[in-house]
Design a protein around this nucleic acid. Structure first.
Lengths: 192, 192
DNA sequence: ACTTTTCTGAAACGCTCATTTCAGAAACTA
DNA sequence: TAGTTTCTGAAATGAGCGTTTCAGAAAAGT
């Protein structure tokens, strides 16, 4: 036996995520990344791998974190409709908080059209959110809290596609009130 | 006097736009660009300028083209609601057609958070679409074709933010039927 | 304490990046 | 056609890119 890895991989990936999030995949240099991670590039290549593998880990880290958050939120809700309302509020709050937009959405536009591996990871992430929303919608319909005039799959896609646009608007205008209004409107439309 | 510029600047910018569209600002190299434009880099620097100035021209070119398209469409519609329906159909068709998503939206996520100049151009573009939709919505309300329960400004933002999400979904799943369903649902929600 | 294994830091790798230079070709005027 | 101006093409610039190398430091087992 001999010495073990010195740096905290989990922590280093979080630092790398911050860099990729701010600068994008192509905009972030290995120098930027190793500086933020506070490790030498040889250590990086010996453990995680090259730039693309590091990016993949960052995507996985980001999506898993969100997944855990969603599951916790759903567990604590009084009803399906309350959980959906909670979801809209959460999303609006996050949109307003993130200075550089959602990392997954950014990546969907910058990287995924030319990278099937990353595209696959983003699809998985999206599928999870889709299933999460579908379950809530179906439950709300069964409990008579929502009308069953539309199919749940489409409504879930609708919700997902709507808040993607909130990110774009907020990147351009930085107006929290604008986003709040949109979130309220969507909640009113769907849950009345 | 002496010789005049040999290459067609307008055409060259269109070629550059294609490259930026596909690869993004940071993903496109000057080599990629001059190859597609079929000019030498010295000619490029002598006329348009550096990479950033070229990108700026591409954004202007793209947004102006869309502006002209919108104005033509609005002029030929029978009523405000018909024009809005037309708009939804047009957007859905373009989303399905563009392999790499909307250039303006891509840029909003990749470049604008770190570049106020580009951000300003995208805001102008967005403002134009916003005003375009607002005018139609107000007219529809005045003509009794839409309910005036919500304010037109918010509804315009709502429409814009919704179809941004269609682009993301289509980039991930490439499913035209999914997009069509969302467009139909939005039209039904707003224009019933 | 010695050996063995593995990680680290600094330097170097070849390559591509955006940008500049400049000699000569091209096109205009007179 | 001669003279003038300006554009073009190829080559060169230095900096930065992602990645690899390797000597030596560090930590484990014996």
């Amino acid at each position: 036996m001999a010495r073990t890895v010195e740096f905290d991989q989990h922590n280093a990936i979080e630092k790398a995520l911050d860099v990729f999030w701010k600068k994008g995949y192509n905009g972030a240099s290995m120098r930027d990344l190793t500086d933020a991670m506070q490790i030498n590039s040889s250590s990086l290549y010996n453990t995680i791998g090259d730039k693309h593998q590091l990016f993949t880990e960052c995507i996985k880290h980001y999506t898993q974190k969100r997944r855990i958050f969603l599951e916790q939120r759903a567990a604590g809700a009084a009803s399906a409709v309350k959980a959906l309302e909670q979801f809209f509020n959460d999303v609006a709050a996050v949109v307003i908080k993130d200075a550089h937009g959602c990392f997954a959405i950014k990546t969907a536009f910058e990287v995924s059209p030319n990278d099937h591996g990353i595209q696959g990871l983003l699809k998985e992430d999206n599928d999870f959110t889709h299933t999460f929303l579908c379950t809530l919608i179906k439950k709300a319909i069964k409990d008579g809290e929502m009308t069953d005039a539309n199919d749940a799959d489409m409504l879930a896609d609708y919700i997902i596609s709507t808040y993607t646009g909130w990110y774009e608007l907020f990147l351009l205008y930085r107006n929290p009130i604008q986003i709040k209004k949109l979130a309220d409107f969507m909640a009113k439309q769907l849950l009345k």
